[in-house]
Design a protein around this nucleic acid. Structure first.
Lengths: 250, 250
DNA sequence: GAACTATGTGTCAAACAGACACAATAATAA
DNA sequence: TTATTATTGTGTCTGTTTGACACATAGTTC
C-alpha cells in the first residue's frame, strides 16, 4: 500500500513491491504494525512500490516514515516472496478495484514479487497512520490470528523466524526499547522474541559480558516491589557488536 | 544472462533479474563460476530473468542447472541489489547490443533489480557451460581481481560475507565436498571460507561433537605421508543441524 | 511492622575452548 | 633396507563459559 490520493502507477516499476514487518514491543508483547483495508476490512502489512529512481531501501524508508512518523528506523531485507500465485487470491484488492475508488487501481492486478523488510521500532514513539487504501493503522500481537490479505501472514512468520535467528549473534533492543530500560524489561523482550523463558541471573551475566550496556545510577521507580536499576545501550560497542557478531562457533 | 538463442524477452518479467554466486572448492581454494562475455571479454555471474509463471527459486534452479549440469543444488537467496545506477555503467552490454547479435537485446537496457543467490556445489561434478551471451564458463578464485561487469564483484563479496556468517551456526561441506573426504580437507574448506587458520586438533574435536560425520574404516591412500581417515556426512543429523542451528548464544 | 515479591549478587559443577605434547604412519631420501 | 620427514591420530592441561540454584536486599502490600 502507498500514500494518499497522490498515487500514480507511472511513478513506479512494474511487478516489484515491498512489504514491511514493523516490530514493536509493548506490555511484554511483540507487536506488528498493520493496516486495515477500506471496504473489505482485511489486514495488510504496510508496503509500497519501487520508485523509478529509488533503491529498495529508500522505498522502505519512505513507507516506514509514512506509517510511523519516524526517520532512521532500523530495518533489513530478509526475503523476496515470488510465488506467481501469491497475488492470485487477491479478493480484497479486486473488491477495492471494483469500487472504482481510484483510476489507477488496475496497476494492482499485475503480478508482483515483493521484497520483505523487517523493522524494529520504539513502540512509544510511533504514530500509526493509515494510507490511501486503509482506514486504520494499528498494532497487533504478532501471534494474533487476523484475516491478512495474500501471503502477509506468512511474511510475518518468516520475519519472526529471521529475527529469532539473528538474536543469537547480534544484539537487539536499541531499536525496540526506550532509551532507558531495566534488565527485566530487556529480558522480557528476549523471551518474547524467542518464545521461551530464560534464567534471570544467567541472562544478566551474559548481557553484561557483551559490554553493550551502561548501568545508570538511577532506579525505575513506581513499579511494584524492589525497584530495578536503569540501563542504556553503549552505542559504540552496540554498533561494533552488530558488525562483528556476538559469539558464534568459529 | 540466460540460455542459448531461444531467448525471448516476452517470456520474462520486466525489471527483475537474478544472479548466482556459485561456490566450488578445489585445491584448497574457494572458487566462483563465471562467464566471459562475448565481444567485450568482461566477466559476469551466471544469471537470468524471471519467467512469467516462475518463482525466483525455480528461475535460479534453471540457471544453475544450465551452467553446471547439476540438479538439486543447495542455494539460497541472500540479498536484492536495487541501486538504480547499478546497470547504468553497463558498457559491456551496450557494446553487445550494438553488435545486433540478437533482436531482443534492448530488453537489457531497462533498469533491473537483481536477486542474489549463492549456491554450493561439488567442484568435481560441475560441467561448466557458457550461455548465449558468453563464450566461456570458468572457475575463478573468489579473490581474483578480474574485470566484472556492473556490480558483480560486489555481489560476490556480499555472498562470501553471508556464507562466512552462516558458517558459525550452520554446517557446511555436504554440498562442497565429494561424498568421502578427510578431516584435513574439511578443515581446509572451513579455513578457506573464513580466511584464517584453525587448530587442527580443536577443529576435529568440534566437528565430531556436532555428530554430523560418520567415520569410515577407510583411509585416503596416495597422498604423501600418513594417510588420513575418510569421513562422510550423516545426512540425517546434518539436515537437523541445518534446521536447528549448531550452537548460538541463546 | 510483618509479609511478600521481585531484584541484586554470588556459588558450584559440568561443559567447552584454546594452547600444546607426543606417538603413529607412510612416503621419501639415504 | 633404514633413517628421515611431514602429516595425521589422540590426549592433556588450564582458563572460560554455561546452566542450575541460594540467599540477601529493597520497596510495596497488608
Amino acid at each position: 500500500m502507498t500514500d494518499s490520493g497522490t498515487f500514480k502507477s507511472d511513478d513506479f516499476l512494474d511487478h516489484i513491491s515491498l512489504d514491511c514487518v514493523i516490530f514493536g514491543f509493548h506490555n511484554g508483547e511483540l507487536k506488528v504494525l498493520t493496516l486495515r483495508l477500506k471496504y473489505t476490512k482485511e489486514f495488510a502489512l504496510p508496503g509500497g512500490f519501487l520508485g523509478k529512481e529509488e533503491t529498495l531501501e529508500d522505498a522502505a524508508k519512505r513507507v516506514l516514515q509514512e506509517r510511523t512518523g519516524l526517520k532512521d528506523i532500523f530495518m533489513k531485507q530478509f526475503k523476496v516472496f515470488s510465488d506467481p500465485d501469491r497475488s492470485k487470491t487477491n479478493v480484497a484488492i479486486q473488491d477495492l478495484i471494483n469500487t472504482g475508488a481510484h483510476p489507477d487501481l488496475h496497476f494492482f492486478e499485475k503480478r508482483f514479487i515483493s521484497v520483505g523488510f523487517y523493522a524494529l521500532v520504539d513502540f512509544t514513539k510511533v504514530k500509526p497512520s493509515p494510507d490511501f487504501f486503509s482506514d486504520k493503522c494499528e498494532w497487533k500481537n504478532v501471534n494474533e490470528q487476523a484475516p491478512y490479505i495474500l501471503d502477509h501472514k506468512k511474511i510475518i512468520e518468516k520475519a519472526l523466524e529471521v529475527l529469532r535467528r539473528q538474536l543469537s549473534y547480534q544484539p537487539i533492543g536499541y531499536n525496540l526499547l526506550p532509551e532507558k530500560f531495566t534488565m527485566p524489561e530487556l529480558q522480557k523482550l528476549y523471551e518474547t522474541i524467542l518464545g521461551r523463558e530464560l534464567d534471570r541471573r544467567n541472562f544478566q551475566r551474559k548481557m553484561l559480558s557483551y559490554k553493550i550496556l551502561n548501568k545508570l545510577d538511577e532506579r525505575k521507580k513506581g513499579g511494584a516491589y524492589k525497584s530495578p536499576f536503569l540501563y542504556e545501550f553503549n552505542l559504540e560497542n552496540y554498533q561494533k557488536a552488530l558488525n562483528e557478531g556476538l559469539s558464534g562457533s568459529f
